[in-house]
């Protein structure tokens, strides 16, 4: 239980640091740490297969993509005024979080039920076969997206003049 709270707090702090970090590369690394801690949390909740996938995809592949994109696009130097003032965004988020917590938390006081182990492979391949086809199509779309990421170098030649 204490470990659970520690990992949870660490994950939330890492996610917040990823948002407030000034440099993009630092932000990507905080996101990777948050992802790894989320994988640990998922493992503790009793879904080890998904924890492995989250660890390898969320902390591995996505971080590589971020570092690659940042190295192509470069860091942005100056910081602008935000569209919405920060205090207003903070109030909006605090009010909605407070409302959700006030409505839902009293009903969630019960203990976690006993884990009923089911195999992910059985559910995925026998009950939700259409999902697998969808995932294959999505991965194909992702490959096309990576082509867009890679072609960033050549497109500088055909840069149109500013109107």
């Amino acid at each position: 239980m204490a470990w659970f709270i520690l990992i949870m707090a660490g994950m939330l702090i890492c996610a917040a640091m990823a948002v407030v970090a000034k440099r993009l590369l630092v932000s990507a690394i905080w996101l990777a740490i948050a992802s790894a801690l989320l994988a640990l949390l998922i493992y503790l909740l009793g879904a080890p297969e998904l924890a492995v996938i989250e660890l390898s995809v969320g902390a591995g592949l996505v971080t590589v993509l971020f570092v690659f994109a940042i190295s192509i696009a470069g860091e942005e130097g100056h910081i602008h005024q935000s569209l919405l003032p920060k205090w207003l965004a903070g109030i909006v988020i605090a009010v909605s979080v407070g409302l959700i917590g006030w409505l839902c938390l009293p009903d969630l006081g019960f203990e976690m039920p006993q884990l009923v182990p089911t195999r992910l492979s059985t559910v995925l391949w026998e009950l939700r076969g259409a999902d697998v086809i969808l995932q294959v199509i999505l991965i194909f779309a992702g490959v096309l997206g990576v082509l867009g990421l890679l072609s960033g170098e050549q497109s500088t030649i055909s840069k149109e003049p500013d109107a």
Binding site: G46, V57, P117, T122
Partner: peptide, 15 residues
């Protein structure tokens, strides 16, 4: 008590 179903949905979300 349907952790397998939740895992398969969350897998789609990850992708």
């Amino acid at each position: 008590g349907q952790i397998g179903l939740a895992e398969s949905l969350a897998l789609t979300v990850i992708i």
